[in-house]
Design a protein around this nucleic acid. Structure first.
Length: 202
DNA sequence: TACCGG
DNA sequence: GCCGGT
């Protein structure tokens, strides 16, 4: 594996587990088994490294989401699995990291914001439109507005005010939100299809 | 590895 | 005093 890839891989792991600010460049270099100098040959500074780690994480999610859209009739499964993916992503990251990145690494946070609007939202619009064509979702729903609503529901997990003092378990809350969202857009056919296969996809 | 400066 | 950066 290339040095750069190795650094990103180890940094992703260490940052996710211990937080960004509590992992020093010194410690990171030791964990990778290289010198600080080598890290600074690959990355401008710590901000740059954090940004690249974040891009890598989002790239992995992007790949998975593209793969989800492969099947012809995968509309409902797509929405369910996307929710699943985001829940897994959040539980794999130390909540402290989210706060740190927003506060001290605004460029990395911007990457995440762009991912939300440019990718997740556009992906949802396509899925909602496809679901309407297939008769799973009511034709009168506005795909663009509902896609935005759904992005906000999903990413509310990453809003510190929602996870610092959680009133509910966030997994349970996301499940309830997803169920409510789906039932709000389903046609009769969509609802029946969901009920008949929900045991196998949830 | 040692060092400077924030 | 610690840590990013040289």
């Amino acid at each position: 594996m290339e040095t750069r890839e190795k650094i990103l891989e180890v940094a992703k792991d260490q940052f996710s587990r211990f937080g960004v600010r509590s992992v020093t460049m010194e410690e990171l270099a030791r964990a990778v088994g290289i010198s600080k100098k080598t890290i600074y040959q690959e990355f401008e500074d710590k901000k740059d490294l954090v940004k690249e780690v974040f891009s890598k994480i989002l790239d992995e999610d992007r790949q998975k989401m593209v793969a989800l859209l492969e099947g012809e009739d995968m509309v409902i499964e797509h929405l369910v699995k996307m929710s699943q993916m985001m829940r897994e992503r959040l539980s794999s990251i130390n909540p402290m990291v989210i706060v740190e990145v927003q506060k001290y690494f605004p460029e990395a946070w911007r990457i995440f914001e762009e991912f939300k609007t440019n990718f997740i939202q556009e992906d949802l619009i396509r899925v909602l439109d496809r679901g309407k064509e297939l008769g799973y979702f009511r034709s009168e729903i506005d795909s663009r507005i509902m896609a935005k609503v759904r992005v906000n529901q999903i990413t509310s997990m990453f809003d510190p005010s929602n996870f610092i003092n959680p009133e509910f378990n966030f997994v349970e809350e996301q499940m309830v939100l997803m169920d409510h969202f789906l039932h709000g857009i389903f046609t009769e056919k969509g609802r029946e299809s969901f009920n008949s296969k929900k045991a196998s996809i949830i």
